[in-house]
Design a protein around this nucleic acid. Structure first.
Lengths: 210, 210
DNA sequence: GTGTGTGAAGTGGTTCACAGCG
DNA sequence: CGCTGTGAACCACTTCACACAC
């Protein structure tokens, strides 16, 4: 069955919450309680969880450990994904140092940058290569996922060269531009300036109301 | 009229594209062409643009300069927003150095961190204060928008203290946790690890298909 | 009684299809 | 004739409401 994107996003959040509840020793949790913690409707939580079979107990709630492990299974990876990070500037190094990538599902195997002063250096234990060698190294090291943190002017040409390697299956794009890829390469984009602009737009709208 | 969130996001992207086309000297553009550049359907582009009156010419397309200035107007701010950034770690400093905040709609006025070794120092021309002084300084400097780039364990208490100042109208949250705020404080969240997990989930699904 | 699971209804956003204007 | 503007159809996701299991 196809699981909708918003549902997957919420599953990740349930997973996080349950991990915490589990650590705290809580045994049982209701859809109501999950909803309040994460600002979702209880009915939404139940619907999301029901996609994967009857996991809760009527009149009781969900068993924290069981549900945690269940969602863990749903989100689990067949193996550790090898990641490449292109662009070791401010944002790229932030991502490197950031918790999001210190995760047992992924492993950063290589860095790439066009700045020759960075090439050959090691950042957070990972070596930086020149961007021109990206396709070659991605193939050699069996890298399947690429995080793109380069300026918009460089984004598309980076994409073209790594896609040409034929090894890349997914791209997490942080460049403020929409990139084009063959249909078999999945792309998720995080556009920070769009998010900021959206917030500012609605702030302005709020102000106009008054 | 209420403009839907996805529409606002696309407007920001139209704006960027038109700026480029305008610089390049292109005079006219069709919904078709905009759609191809940004990977949206032409009908979607036309619907989005039609919310703001008849701005295109039938049989011709949209006048680049006119449309650019029109969208500029829609997205314009009543004034420069003053921003505070909480959390001058990897991600926070990346955001500081990053282009998204070098924008004539916003101005970073203050930084906050709980690390005493950072307090009193200046980063990218902006002084860092202790987080405990945040509410006070936010009021004093009339800061209305706060960017939150702290670990999830600290997020909610930061939110509570800055919201208590009564001056904050919007929060751009980068912490991997959902925060609760009074209804009159707008929140936009960018959850990098959720985005990564979503990508990995769909990569796994793709693999299962084969 | 309590809280889940779920069909059905509702809501919001996208896409179609074509009338209408340049 | 070409491309926009737009009501209507469509689709996807959310919420409701209640039967059902504990």
């Amino acid at each position: 069955m196809k699981i909708a994107e918003p549902t997957v996003g919420r599953l990740v959040q349930y997973h996080r919450l349950l991990e915490r509840l589990y650590m705290e020793g809580q045994k049982v949790v209701s859809s109501q309680e999950i909803g309040e913690s994460l600002a979702f409707k209880a009915s939404q939580v139940r619907k999301d969880l029901s996609y994967f079979g009857e996991i809760g107990k009527r009149g009781v709630g969900y068993h924290v450990e069981k549900l945690y492990k269940h969602i863990n299974e749903i989100l689990s990876s067949p193996r550790k994904w090898k990641l490449g990070l292109i662009g070791v500037g401010h944002l790229g190094s932030a991502l490197l140092g950031y918790g999001a990538l210190r995760n047992d599902k992924v492993e950063i195997s290589a860095l790439f940058d066009n700045d020759k002063s960075k090439v050959g250096k090691v950042f957070f234990g990972v070596e930086c290569h020149h961007i021109d060698d990206a396709a070659k190294i991605i193939c050699r090291d069996r890298i399947e996922v690429v995080i793109l943190a380069v300026p918009s002017s460089a984004a598309q040409s980076c994409v073209d060269s790594i896609v040409s390697s034929g090894c890349v299956k997914g791209i997490l794009n942080f460049s403020p531009i929409s990139i084009v890829t063959p249909a078999d390469v999945l792309v998720t984009s995080v556009d920070i300036s769009v998010e900021l602009e959206k917030l500012l737009f609605y702030l302005k709208e709020e102000e106009k109301k008054k």
